[in-house]
Design a protein around this nucleic acid. Structure first.
Lengths: 337, 337
DNA sequence: TTGTATGCGTTATCAC
DNA sequence: GTGATAACGCATACAA
């Protein structure tokens, strides 16, 4: 293994000079810089990570805590994880993957050992049990998701309230009067997942303003569950012409069910999905959908975390505005109803 | 920050004793062990990762290199990543996430710096450019996927050949004679992705043995592409009654297309998917499918890597047998054709 | 069974 | 602009 000292000898300078050439924390004459850089590449020197962490009190690693639960659309989790990793690399940081089966202990472990300089929490719940650990250890952190009490924490999330509201707006604009909201399974609402509640709240709120009559039906995301929700909607409100879906698993079944029921989309019924773009594009007809910028979420979390590691105190809550993209699944409310 | 020395003072022993209590590399009397362990928990001691790595020449970190490409079913990638992480934890290891946008350099970086003690490569291609780096640095590694030349490397993969063969067998057993294989986009075959080629080879091979007439159609996984493949299949071989799909994105469209074409599944046509269980369960009717054990893949890769880190030389290639689960989408070939 | 002492490779302080 | 050198916190060879 090539060490700093060997590089120094090879270049005929002291090891501290080599160190400073690398870190750039000292002004170095062009000549020595040349020789040092040449020695580095000739010997194929790579600074030892452990030694650097020990001496520099900075591991240049951040931990990313990912959920095990799968009611989150997995590709989006992955997209966020990857964007976090790539953003971190731009700061010279690497990313350690922590699964939530370790629970709050995982956070404590990597923070207390100095393995990670900071932590990014994904899928943060309203009363997240990892947050007390963060606070107790005074760990640098950024949260993806919005907890109940975000005091002193940096959080990024989609603006789900706005997302829900824009669905209501869009359907109201198209003249729909009776609209159904097919959401996540009731377990999701029972554990007060912020994203589910906030979307629904935004939808309800705007629906009231716009004078929509709405129906909310939880749904497990299976075909059966969707079929159940669908038939109850038709039974309770036969005049329903607008559907908002926030459960990825329910989209396919819903489209089939509408077809089977003889309701042509978008002529007889409009569908607005709250889902990632690739999903929306995948159906036929392509879905009008509200989508939040997933990669941006990861990037911003890293930016915030890096600020904190650098001793700054960035803003507490950042909400990223989702975009409603009109595609082929929504249209004017049918007149004949 | 609590250090070993502080714990030692608190417990009234030397720091090496504390170290040995933790590592278990020395026999310690019950009494001192007690006192040390108490001191550790009282002070909330966590060994410093950097110092440990420096002194022990072992970071207790492995790197997991994940692909950026998304033609792999993403949830499975995630499942593997998570199983790798959990398996690694059992060995006291953490997992560093490396995205493939760094290319082979990423592998070099983490290996040469001693950041990671070993590397797990996901989505290995036949001529993978990361492999030369592995060989040059003599990095401990385990590959998920099968490269052209696996000499001296430890690889785990699904037995795709067997997977393809079992699809042919199943349909032949049911009396089908004309079977179509809807695969990945032609780009996947052109870059000689091992999994695609081996599945097709296994399918072809067994189909020949069983006297099936087959048709292979690449498919991009969109609705349009699937519709195109489907109509060409019906045009070229109207008597086709069996469908094998290896493209997750094509499954939904195919089911719709069959329904639209008036072919009831499984009475008029049988569908066998090569896909993860959750996907197979999600459709209506539920799909007969061949599924490889994804988590097992991750676990095994970690096991192999740990053996190598411990100086052993485990077997080169491990192929995990997939399982064909009969569900509702396959049945006897229709007699009237 | 336990203690002492050295070294791991880097960063950063102090001196020149 | 550059060079010594003292930490950094732990593991381990060597002593006792």
């Amino acid at each position: 293994m090539v060490t700093l000292a060997e590089v120094a000898r090879h270049a005929g300078v002291s090891s501290s000079t080599v160190s400073y050439v690398i870190s750039g924390k000292r002004t170095i004459s062009g000549a020595t810089r040349q020789r040092v850089e040449q020695a580095i590449s000739e010997l194929g020197y790579h600074p030892n990570a452990g030694a650097r962490a020990l001496a520099g009190k900075r591991s240049h690693i951040i931990a990313l805590v990912v959920p095990l639960r799968t009611d989150v659309y997995v590709p989006i989790m992955m997209e966020i994880a990857i964007s976090v990793t790539m953003a971190a690399r731009q700061y010279g940081y690497d990313v350690l993957l922590i699964t939530n089966d370790e629970g709050p202990e995982g956070v404590r472990r990597v923070a207390a050992s100095g393995l990670a300089d900071g932590v990014i929490l994904m899928d943060v719940e309203l009363e997240d049990e990892r947050i007390p650990v963060l606070r107790a250890l005074n760990t640098h952190a950024a949260l993806i998701g919005l907890p109940e009490d975000s005091t002193g924490l940096s959080c990024v999330d989609h603006d789900f309230f706005a997302a829900g509201a824009s669905c209501a707006d869009h359907l109201a604009d198209l003249g729909h009067r009776d609209v159904a909201f097919i959401g996540y399974g009731s377990a999701v609402y029972q554990r007060h997942a912020g994203y589910a509640e906030r979307t629904l709240a935004g939808f309800r709120d705007r629906a009231a303003t716009r004078g929509l009559r709405i129906l909310h039906r939880p749904c497990e995301g299976t075909y059966e569950s969707t079929a159940g929700a669908f038939s109850r909607i038709l039974a309770d409100r036969p005049a329903t012409t607008g559907f908002v879906v926030q459960n990825e698993g329910a989209i396919g079944p819903l489209m089939s069910l509408l077809r089977t029921a003889g309701r042509i989309v978008p002529e007889d019924a409009s569908v607005v999905a709250l889902c990632p773009e690739p999903l929306a594009e995948q159906y036929s007809p392509r879905l009008t959908a509200v989508t939040g910028p997933a990669q941006e979420l990861g990037r911003r979390a890293v930016d915030l975390l890096m600020q904190r590691i650098d001793g700054k105190e960035p803003q507490e809550v950042t909400l990223l505005t989702p975009v409603l993209t009109v595609r082929e699944s929504s249209g004017p409310a049918p007149l004949h109803l």
